[in-house]
């Protein structure tokens, strides 16, 4: 019998495992991918410090190695069943059945599929990228930055709230981190393409965290990024591959047309499909935004409606990396209390 089974080997899962080890518990991590680290593997730099994502990743890789954490890679969970004695049976894709006293869902998030927002032209027009595509591109950047149609960009637009705060995409909630990510990426682009004009089209700018507002100010003052308060409605493609954006500048109360070389869609976070599976197999309660519903919003955010089943990180909603790490640490303490009580 394992003390804690952790679903997901992203930073939430690894941090939970590390903290629990410090508290003296034995854990097993199940990760569906070939490597640990989750989405962090695809990210170039982190806000608000522009620090390389690889630094954080390396730290956790090193911890994993040092602590000799047990991780099953290439394994995904097919069902979680709570047994009558209060323990859990977790079935996986690999014919391994785990029995554990507690389970932590640290399965993270998935990114909104921008193809569902057809009027933005993702996968229809060559020069439309998502924020994740841009990170990948920046991560592997070798030499001068060029658009997918091989042009040094002169105009770039970032579109906030793609698949967030949008009933039509099925996601009514704010994804919280896209605003600051857009500002970070806009600054980054300006740094590597100083000649380019950069626009951010936003509905509301939500700079909620430490250092975020400062970044926004820097983007305005130092990098001359133009912020347009308006939501993109339609994209057209010109013969030369440039894109024609239709946005209302709501502050000027006039429709505007912007011609850009590259369009970056700030895709939001969605609850991964696995959450729906857990909901089905063990009656886990989900919020209207499809993320896991914490048992108590304020004082029990790591707990779920099922005793012994805990959460860490973005499985309960969009979260930044530092919030995720804190949430994972909190999860470890909550689990310790649970295990020592039972």
């Amino acid at each position: 019998m394992i003390d804690v089974l952790i679903i997901g080997g992203g930073i939430a899962g690894i941090e939970t495992a590390c903290s629990l080890q410090d508290l003296g518990y034995e854990t097993v991590i199940v990760e569906k991918e070939r490597t640990i680290g989750g989405h962090l593997n695809n990210w170039d730099t982190l806000f608000p410090t522009h620090r390389p994502a690889s630094e954080v990743l390396e730290y956790y890789t090193e911890e994993t190695r040092k602590r000799a954490l047990t991780i099953y890679l290439n394994t995904y969970v097919t069902s979680i069943i709570k047994l009558d004695d209060g323990t859990f049976e977790v079935n996986t894709s690999r014919d391994v059945i785990f029995h554990s006293k507690t389970v932590v869902i640290a399965s993270g998030y998935s990114l909104f599929n921008a193809e569902r927002k057809e009027e933005y032209g993702y996968k229809i027009y060559d020069n439309v990228l998502t924020s994740a595509d841009l990170e990948k591109k920046l991560k592997t950047l070798n030499g001068e930055f060029k658009t997918p149609t091989d042009k040094v960009p002169e105009k770039i637009a970032f579109i906030h709230c793609v698949g967030s705060r949008d009933e039509k995409s099925g996601n009514h909630y704010c994804s919280k981190l896209c605003c600051v990510t857009a500002v970070k990426q806009a600054i980054h682009m300006k740094q590597i393409c100083p000649q380019a004009d950069i626009f951010c089209c936003y509905m509301d700018l939500r700079m909620y965290g430490p250092g975020f507002e400062e970044m926004y100010r820097e983007a305005q003052e130092k990098y001359h990024i133009q912020f347009i308060r308006g939501r993109l409605s339609e994209v057209g493609e010109n013969a030369d591959g440039t894109l024609q954006l239709k946005v209302e500048d709501t502050l000027a109360a006039r429709p505007s047309k912007i011609k850009v070389d590259m369009l970056v869609l700030m895709v939001g976070m969605e609850s991964p499909q696995s959450t729906a599976l857990f909901k089905e197999t063990c009656g886990l309660q989900c919020a209207p935004n499809r993320f896991i519903q914490p048992n108590d919003h304020h004082i029990g955010s790591n707990k779920t409606n099922i005793d012994g089943l805990f959460t860490a990180g973005t499985s309960i909603g969009p979260m930044s990396i530092f919030d995720t790490i804190n949430h994972a640490k909190a999860s470890a303490i909550t689990i310790k209390n649970y295990l020592s009580r039972n």
Partner: peptide, 18 residues
């Protein structure tokens, strides 16, 4: 007040309708 209705508007494309 996001303005996407106005930017996409067929009438707005032809007139000052907002």
């Amino acid at each position: 007040s996001c303005g996407s209705c106005t930017a996409i508007c067929s009438a707005g494309n032809l007139t000052s309708f907002n």
